[in-house]
């Protein structure tokens, strides 16, 4: 399986060999949100800066932004989680992915947190 990286905003990122990154929210994020009832995704072809708010996830209680972990162009979005937002709760780390980015600079991926660093970060919260 491809290497998974993380952000302090609780997104996960997986980079495939073609330079396309799949982005979702972490297990910790879906647990903290609780029952997810609404997801809004960016439009395909949208160019994103690193850290740009580009999706929204809402639970019964709260609304949160999802940010682009690295700069790039949206090449696909997961309509399944729009139809069935609860999929993000059940499968946050795979089937519940949010969008795919054609990454501008693959080195930016390497600069994200690895699993150990993210786990250590969670312990500081």
């Amino acid at each position: 399986m491809a290497d998974t990286r993380y952000t302090k905003d609780h997104e996960w990122v997986r980079l495939d060999e073609d330079g396309v990154a799949t982005v979702g929210i972490t297990q910790h994020a879906q647990e903290a949100l609780g029952d997810i009832v609404f997801v809004e995704l960016p439009e395909v072809d949208r160019e994103l800066e690193e850290g740009e708010a580009c999706a929204v996830v809402e639970s019964v209680k709260a609304a949160s932004d999802v940010y682009a972990p690295i700069a790039g162009r949206i090449v696909a979005v997961n309509e399944a989680i729009v139809e069935e937002p609860g999929l993000v709760n059940r499968e946050s780390m795979d089937e519940g992915w949010f969008f795919k980015l054609e990454v501008a600079d693959p080195d930016a991926f390497e600069a994200l947190l690895d699993e150990d660093a993210y786990t250590a970060f969670l312990e500081t919260l």
Binding site: D9, H10, A32, L33, A62, A63, S64, D65, V66
Partner: peptide, 8 residues
């Protein structure tokens, strides 16, 4: 991801 509306 940042919660903008949520807990006190």
């Amino acid at each position: 991801m940042t919660t903008v509306i949520g807990l006190d």
